[in-house]
């Protein structure tokens, strides 16, 4: 009795919700094209080559204005990430000067354990250098952005485990600059038009252009196109890794745990039935 009612009620709830949501549809939703990411889904893992390319884009283009203060150089050598070699990381870290009160002159060359130094010392410095806009820190930015789905599509996200809204947004943002603001749009001085950015007037000039970065192709790898779209995808993937460095391991453990629970639940059900056998209830 309870069960048939449950079904009926669920249907009623869904009907009610779609009624309400129809009235809400007036609010504009920016359409952002979802990408297919290697790290999506139950078995998702990062593509090491993509992360290395993404790091190159970050390092050569973004890092002059954007920090990544929660990332340590050593993270770049960790398994499941870009997995650069220890030697590469050591050399990279040594290129940076790290403030250290105990060192001669207050600075010393970086080591693998150091955090990524921020390009500006204070928030005010950052604003002054960027026409009043603050370039956000990249450490967790990929999780601080998202894509809004209309009802009922967001409901499915709970069942697919969709967690790639951040990289989708970043890719969308980087590929959505327009040379001219549309007719009637008042673009403030020093701002650029972007149809994904909230409010459309963004302080960051289009950072990427086709052919801007030269990807080295290692032996046995296929070359990827050197386009804005590809750069954007790669840097978005790299930013997702920065925000969620243990994603691959987490999903692998999760799969084992889920499998365990299904088997355990089956055994528990059998045990429970055996114990209840012969009892009218």
């Amino acid at each position: 009795m309870f069960n048939t009612k449950t079904v009926l009620a669920t249907l009623a709830v869904l009907a009610g919700l779609s009624g309400v949501s129809a009235t809400q549809a007036a609010g504009e939703v920016v359409h952002i094209e979802k990408q297919s990411w290697s790290f999506a889904g139950i078995f998702g893992t990062y593509d090491q080559n993509q992360l290395q390319r993404g790091f190159q884009v970050f390092n050569e283009v973004c890092a002059s204005c954007h920090g990544a203060r929660l990332i340590a150089f050593r993270n770049l050598a960790e398994e499941g990430g870009p997995s650069f070699s220890e030697a590469q990381i050591k050399a990279l870290a040594a290129e940076y000067e790290i403030a250290d009160a105990t060192a001669d002159g207050g600075v010393r060359p970086g080591v693998a354990a150091d955090r990524w130094p921020s390009p500006f010392e204070t928030e005010q410095d950052a604003r002054d250098a960027n026409g009043g806009s603050l370039p956000p820190d990249f450490s967790v930015l990929a999780k601080a952005r998202g894509v809004h789905d209309a009802f009922p599509f967001w409901v499915f996200n709970y069942f697919t485990g969709y967690s790639e809204g951040g990289p989708d947004y970043i890719h969308g943002l980087l590929t959505s600059y327009e040379d001219e603001a549309p007719e009637g749009f008042e673009l403030p001085e020093g701002k650029y038009y972007n149809h994904v950015f909230p409010g459309n007037a963004i302080g960051m000039a289009p950072p990427l252009s086709d052919g801007q970065i030269t990807y080295e192709v290692a032996e046995g790898q296929t070359a990827v196109p050197e386009t804005v779209d590809q750069y954007s995808t790669d840097v978005a993937a790299f930013m997702m890794w920065m925000a969620e460095p243990h994603l691959s391991g987490r999903k692998q453990t999760g799969f084992v745990v889920l499998l365990f629970l299904v088997v355990f639940a089956g055994l528990m059900y059998g045990t429970k039935r055996k114990i209840w056998a012969g009892i009218e209830h």
């Binding site: 365990f260 088997v263 355990f264 055994l267 528990m268 059998g270 045990t271 055996k274």
Partner: peptide, 19 residues
């Protein structure tokens, strides 16, 4: 059969608890 089921369930529960 019944004993086997109980032992198996208990063993799996033990593994889960340890993990």
């Amino acid at each position: 059969r019944r004993d086997f089921l109980f032992v198996a369930t208990g063993a799996v529960a033990g593994v889960g608890a340890a993990a």
